[in-house]
Design a protein around this nucleic acid. Sequence first.
RNA 1: CGGGAAGUAGCACAACUUGGUAGUGCGUUCGGUUUGGGACCGAGAGGUUGCAGGUUCAAAUCCUGUCUUCCCGACCA
Length: 477
Amino acid sequence: MKENKVKDITSRDIDFSKWYTDVVKKADLIDYSSVKGCMIIRPYGYAIWENIQSTLDKTFKKLGHQNVYMPMFIPESLLNKEKEHVQGFAPEVAWVTHGGSEKLEEKLCVRPTSETLFCEHYAKIINSYRDLPKLYNQWCSVVRWEKTTRPFLRSREFLWQEGHTIHATEDEARLETITMLNCYADFCKNILAIPVIKGRKTEKEKFAGAVDTYTIEALMYNGIALQSGTSHYFGDGFAKAFNIVYSDKENKLKYAHQTSWGVTTRLIGAIIMVHSDDNGLVLPPNIAPNKVIIIPIGKDDNLNKRAYEFKKLLECNGINTIIDNSDKSPGFKFAEAEVKGIPVRIEFGQRDLENDSVTMVRRDNGLKEIVKIEDIPNKVLELLAFIQNDMYERALLRKNEMTFTAKNLDEMEKIINKQPGFIKAMWCGNEKCEIQIKEKIGVTSRCIPLDNNEKISDKCVCCGKDAKELVYWGKQY
RNA sequence: CGGGAAGUAGCACAACUUGGUAGUGCGUUCGGUUUGGGACCGAGAGGUUGCAGGUUCAAAUCCUGUCUUCCCGACCA
């Protein structure tokens, strides 16, 4: 490996946690605020979120979803309507108890999630099968009073989207749940270059109030798993609690079936922990706010003029480009561009121009290439596609390398002591084993994979009784 | 929420042990010289030492509380 070119970033192989916070700060993604766990998302960090948002929003709309906005306050009585749901969220909600100096008659919870608000609304607007389905989504922030906080991975307020849909039948709702799970998985793969495991959560790990919770699980560089998105099938549980009924074609009253699904700013944490390196952020081209940075070397006016020409040329091809023509030294600019993870750097000086060429450098692997000026737009387009693809392939390879199998607890323990990662192992389906594995080995069930029928063994990894399912286990953020 | 560490200029740190009114480097501003991997010279600006109490003639320094950050656990996207 090359020497670390960036000052003040701890090596990720020496102290991964420290490295993560260093990158977050040095790339200028966030600043801390004076309230614990509440971060200021800086312009560069927010630009990444905006890209995530706009890409997903288009996909949602293509699939027929509409955006709405729900209030941020939930009356206590409303939150209390669905038992499991309250129990799951009550420990971490923030309450508003006063308006001005007046004590409120009923305290208001700051939404940790909006199921109850959507349900209350659906109960009002749904009467007939003709009113179904409703495919709503909202972009907003939610508040969960976390004890331990980390930028992007766990903050007390975070940005997300929450889709809430309601359907006439179970089949239709289940299809929606899986459709959205696939939508997230495809987004991670194609846009964020992050491979994920699609799966179902165990009873123990599922969302409070859900019949089934589906998840996409990504593996970070250090082998720790990150739940990166969830999609829930609610059955008619919420419909019963909130009395959401409709008249079907035979004029019989029926309960509706619901789903909800969401991804959060945590995805930014995933991008960092999957792709970035000791020189800072590495952004997949498809999500990078700026795809190219042009750095003219020297202060000749002509260099500047050419830089703007190149920028214009690239932007005509839809490639966001910035120029660094400050009077910092070239080395400084290179390092700065690397910390920020800009996928392609174009550098040129008088020497290059005399040969009608520029130098292009890839952020992901540092490879340099001399490119003829006339080839610039095509070459950049090609490079961006290569980078996107290579970043996914590298992440996939690393995920696969860090995915192990175990037939019994001893094997599990050996694996986890040597190198954290995903551990595939069979499970009998009994929650007692799940708890025991967590207590003894320190890993939790991540998911029961959807598209993997492998049989590691006939027996449960924990109790040795007949195995029912393959489970991905791992340490998690 | 438990266990540990830390908070002094934008950033990294020194001064704290032994109380006497804050310093270094980087950055920043201005002027100049530079430019192919974090340039150089000169001049300047920037601080009620996280906050609140207490001890004292006197507190960055000692004591108490509190807030924030980081690390390790338990809980969660």
